[in-house]
């Protein structure tokens, strides 16, 4: 059973005024079958955490460790991490002009699965996954994320989640920008992924509404670059009612 273990993680970014620390000691363990929700004010470092796990070159890990089933994730390149079973649904998916979505999906699936999927079953697989996510098959012929609406980009992320079937998925604000119907469609997609019980989910969100569709086992409050409180699902309701004022200075209080 897969385990992602983050220990005392410190992460900096380079700025014009030198390195700036954004994560200041994150400890978190996500096991297969578990769903963790992370909630916290804007700018507290939630996306930074997800990028650091995925290996974005902009974020430098200055100390601490990340392991997946005991393997040192920090020693892996970005693509090795993905092939090892980590997946990040991005808050702002990137447009790649001129690269068709179908080519992209097949190239990614080939890389992650270690062999090219058989063409006939692959086409069917993609079609069915798109249908489940209420995506027009025409998206397959468009350039990756180019001109997709915010909601369409998020569905495309979950489509990739379904096709790449990782061990641990980090979903960074996958719910933001979705209308009620899209939220349900996307949540159903995540729940199908979870259903095997063999995958772990780390869900970053500002809103409890997605947690009504995707039930978390644990809720963590993120503030000032680390987890400041952890609890069960009930913690989300407390946060919704009271905000983050309690956890951070007034400047970080806005949600």
């Amino acid at each position: 059973m897969a385990t992602l273990e983050i220990k005392d993680l410190h992460v900096s970014v380079a700025t014009d005024d030198g390195a700036k620390e954004i994560l200041s000691g994150v400890d978190l363990t996500v096991r297969a079958g578990e769903t963790h929700a992370i909630m916290g004010p804007n700018g507290s470092g939630k996306s930074t955490l997800s990028y650091a796990v995925a290996g974005h070159p902009k974020y430098e890990v200055t100390s601490g460790s990340i392991t997946l089933d005991g393997e040192d994730v920090l020693a892996m390149s970005v693509d090795e991490r993905a092939r090892a079973g980590l997946f990040l649904a991005m808050q702002y998916p990137v447009e790649v002009p001129g690269v068709s979505t179908s080519n992209f999906l097949r190239t990614a699936a080939t890389a992650v699965r270690g062999e090219a999927p058989k063409l006939r079953t692959w086409v069917k697989e993609v079609k069915e996954s798109m249908k489940e996510l209420d995506m027009d098959p025409a998206f397959a012929e468009r350039s990756v994320n180019e001109g997709f609406s915010g909601g369409e980009k998020k569905r495309h992320e979950i489509l990739q989640l379904a096709l790449l079937n990782p061990k641990i998925a980090i979903l960074d604000e996958t719910d933001s920008g979705l209308d009620v119907d899209a939220l349900r469609v996307v949540s159903d997609g995540v729940n199908r992924f979870k259903a095997s019980g063999e995958a772990g989910v780390l869900l970053i969100t500002h809103y409890t509404r997605i947690l009504r569709h995707i039930k978390p086992d644990f809720v963590h409050v993120f503030a000032g670059g680390r987890i400041v409180e952890s609890g069960g699902p009930e913690l989300a309701d407390v946060l919704e009612a009271e905000g983050y004022v309690k956890y951070a200075g007034a400047e970080a209080a806005g949600v």
Binding site: G55, H56, V78, D79, A82, V94, G98, A111, V112
Partner: peptide, 29 residues
Amino acid sequence: DDEQLFYLQARGIPEDQARRLVVRGFFHE
């Protein structure tokens, strides 16, 4: 574009292949 490369690599696509995809995409139009 580092962000494009990162996105492709984050889906398991090795760096050299990701670079080729981006260049081909650049000329595609």
